[in-house]
């Protein structure tokens, strides 16, 4: 393992870039911290730090590989908001590894792209990162918790309690902007996350099964139905698989959830940021 790491490292453009940077800074290689030279798995610093060309290259790579889920502005669509990563203390090495390894339990795949490409993407993401969040500091968290318990908890979990039909919201304020969360509450059908998109299955007898879609191919569909049961169906047994445009989550307009109540709810979700 150790040997191959070194071998791979020596051949990477990433290191060449770092060497260039080091020489530009007028110091010798010997002064480079060993951690920063550790190669792809275990690198602690981005060899492209501050390199505008790498940043531009990273932006282009991001646009083709990441934007579909994370948004052209990296503020998240179905995937998380990536502009808040540094604000919540995520390290560059961690971002690199997440891209490299993917995210278990999600549709975020692993990547076998060359190391320098991943570092370029990391450099781009850092360039669009926001300052630490100040978005969830207004409102009454206790009242927000009450709203959550009366309104959201049947379908959403936080810290191990609640329903499973909708996404777990324990970390949602860490990975979504206030604007994105507001939109998701006011108009949940505007963007349904992959894995939570409403589907209606019409049986051969015309009966309806409703749930959120977890998977589908030409011949079958996998859902979590409204009883929270994981269920697979063969399309040959169904009359129709209907992808709905409306989320199972009701829209909470200002008549149902005032701006103040929304503020309280977001504040509550913001408190979940705190590592227990």
């Amino acid at each position: 393992m150790g040997k191959s790491k070194v071998a791979r490292y020596r051949s990477t453009p990433g290191r060449q870039a770092m060497v260039r940077l080091v020489l530009m800074c007028g110091v010798t290689l010997l002064l480079v911290p060993s951690g920063a030279r550790a190669g792809q798995d275990g690198v602690v610093a981005n060899p492209y730090e501050g390199d505008p060309a790498a940043r531009r290259a990273g932006a282009a790579l991001y646009g083709t590989r990441c934007a579909e889920c994370h948004g052209a502005d990296a503020k998240g669509i179905s995937g998380p908001d990536l502009t808040a990563l540094w604000a919540v203390g995520t390290s560059e090495a961690r971002v690199f590894q997440t891209i490299r390894r993917g995210v278990p339990g999600s549709i975020m795949p692993s990547s076998s792209a060359p190391e320098n490409e991943l570092w370029a993407i990391v450099a781009y993401l850092k360039s669009v990162s926001t300052v630490p969040p100040v978005e969830f500091t207004t409102g009454d968290a206790d009242h927000g918790r009450d709203i959550f318990r009366s309104t959201c908890v049947r379908c959403h979990r936080v810290n191990g309690n609640g329903g499973r039909l909708g996404p777990d919201l324990s970390r949602i304020a860490r990975i979504r902007s206030r604007a994105a969360l507001t939109l998701a509450i006011r108009d949940p059908s505007a963007s349904m996350a992959v894995g939570y998109r409403t589907v209606t299955l019409v049986t051969a007898d015309g009966e309806l099964i409703r749930g959120v879609k977890k998977g589908e191919d030409v011949f079958s569909v996998q859902i979590v139905d409204t009883e929270e049961r994981l269920q697979g169906y063969l399309k040959a047994d169904l009359g129709e698989v209907r992808d709905e445009t409306q989320s199972l989550m009701p829209a909470f307009g200002s008549d149902q959830l005032s701006d103040d109540d929304l503020d309280d709810l977001l504040r509550f979700l913001g408190t979940l940021n705190v590592v227990q």
Binding site: T203, E207, I209, R210
Partner: peptide, 25 residues
Amino acid sequence: LTRLVVIATLFALPSSAWLAARQDP
């Protein structure tokens, strides 16, 4: 399919009513 009638009924309800009427897992 025995439970589908229940679901089908729920489907006809407004979504907020569905939320309140959803069965336990």
